[in-house]
Computed example of a mutant assay.
Amino acid sequence: MLTVDRYFEDYALGEVRRSVGRTITETDIVLHAGQTGDFFPHHMDAEWTSTQPFGQRIAHGTLILSVAVGMTAGDINPQSMSYGYDGIRFIKPVFIGDTITVAAEIVDRVEHPKRPATHGYLHEKVTVTNQRGEVVLVLTHLYLVNRRP
Rank of each mutant, 00 (worst) to 15 (best):
I91M: 15
F90W: 09
P93W: 03
H141N: 15
H119K: 05
D108F: 07
Y11T: 07
H123G: 07
I88G: 09
H60K: 12
V128L: 10
A33I: 05
E134R: 14
G70E: 14
T62S: 15
T62A: 15
Y121Q: 03
D10M: 11
I106G: 03
V135C: 15
F40S: 12
A103G: 10
V126P: 03
E47N: 14
S66Y: 05
V30S: 02
V30G: 02
D45C: 10
A33R: 01
I88F: 09
D45L: 11
Y7G: 07
V16Q: 07
K114I: 07
G37D: 02
E47T: 13
T51G: 14
H43K: 04
R115Q: 11
A59V: 13
T25F: 04
R17N: 12
H123E: 13
L2M: 09
V138P: 02
I58F: 08
K92Q: 13
G37V: 06
G120V: 00
A68R: 01
V20T: 11
R89V: 07
G120E: 00
K114Y: 05
N77Q: 05
S80I: 02
R109W: 07
M1H: 06
P149A: 15
G70F: 14
A59W: 14
N130C: 13
Q52V: 13
R57A: 10
T27C: 11
T23E: 05
S19L: 11
A103Q: 04
V20Y: 03
S19D: 11
D108Q: 14
R148I: 09
A68E: 09
L122D: 01
E134V: 12
V136C: 09
I106L: 13
G61N: 12
L13F: 13
G74Q: 09
T36F: 07
A73S: 12
A12L: 08
G87L: 02
H32V: 04
V128S: 04
G120T: 00
Q52I: 14
R22K: 08
I106K: 03
I29D: 00
W48F: 15
F8P: 01
D38A: 09
R109Q: 13
V94H: 00
T118D: 09
E111Q: 07
Q52P: 10
R17Y: 08
T118H: 04
S66L: 08
T51C: 12
I96N: 02
R115T: 06
T3N: 06
Q35M: 10
D10H: 04
V69I: 15
A117W: 03
G14H: 10
T3Y: 02
P116K: 01
V107G: 04
P93E: 13
